[in-house]
């Protein structure tokens, strides 16, 4: 350990860029990015499940509003959504005097709202596809057992849909991590914000951005492995039997 420490100190001794201060900025940025992405994915997931069920409903007054929502949020760039929620809302007269301003004043919540609504829209569509692809036989079997609509949804349709949605959802998680890089345009000091700060401070684009790219890469690896593990566990029954 001490050797490692000495080696690390030597490694950092010769450069002006990666000082304790800038490493601190990156660490702070990592915390911000993780917080934003995890929270938005979590809330997005909770929103997406009921929305996906509604979206697969046959009632037009349930189905179409949800379709409109996913269409709008999937049809516009996340950057634009973020701009509207952060910069746009201030043009609503008198908003500073309402309780809404408590949420909208600092950049964190507007970014969280934009990310959540965006990922919820994508996740809704992923789950809807998975629900729609439920094998007919499973539904017929459930009906034959006399299950009610709700029970069938809870016991048969959703568990099987979640499994099918897993690989696509894993992609969405990775996309969300990468999409969070735009948080720095609304002054959040996320990973990319830290990299832009270091870049601007030392005029060293390679060092600043390669370093942050490596961090994103590590995070992506973590997510990949998590999902591979989940798929192994949950989709074991789909593996070819040997």
């Amino acid at each position: 350990m001490e050797q490692l420490n000495a080696w690390f100190t030597r490694l950092l001794a010769d450069n002006e860029i990666f000082t304790a201060q800038t490493i601190g900025y990156y660490a702070h940025g990592l915390a911000n990015t993780a917080q934003l992405v995890l929270l938005s994915l979590l809330i997005g997931l909770m929103l997406a499940v009921p929305l996906a069920i509604g979206r697969s409903s046959s009632r037009p007054w349930v189905k179409w509003p949800i379709f409109l929502y996913t269409y709008v949020f999937r049809g516009t760039p996340l950057l634009i959504q973020l701009y509207i929620i952060y910069y746009g809302v201030v043009f609503v007269d008198g908003i500073q005097d309402t309780w809404l301003w408590l949420i909208l004043e600092k950049p964190f919540y507007p970014a969280l709202i934009a990310f959540t609504l965006n990922t919820a829209a994508y996740t809704t569509e992923i789950f809807r596809g998975a629900i729609k692809a439920t094998p007919k036989g499973e539904i017929e079997a459930a009906r034959a057992y006399g299950m009610s609509q709700a029970k069938m949804l809870r016991r048969i349709v959703l568990p099987s849909a979640f499994r099918r949605a897993l690989p696509a959802y894993g992609n969405e998680v990775i996309f969300m991590l990468h999409a969070s890089a735009i948080a720095s345009v609304v002054t959040i000091m996320d990973l990319t914000g830290a990299a832009r700060f270091v870049y601007a401070r030392f005029y060293a684009p390679f060092d600043a951005f390669l370093f942050v790219a490596a961090i994103y890469l590590c995070l992506t690896f973590g997510i990949l492995y998590l999902f591979r593990y989940l798929e192994k566990r949950l989709l074991a029954h789909l593996k070819p039997q040997t």
Binding site: Y87, V90, Q96, W101, T187
Partner: peptide, 18 residues
């Protein structure tokens, strides 16, 4: 410290009271 890419964004946030 809030850092902005353009002075316009900064003025907007100043107007907004942020």
């Amino acid at each position: 410290i809030n850092r902005y890419s353009t002075a316009d964004d900064m003025v907007l946030d100043m107007d907004a009271g942020r």
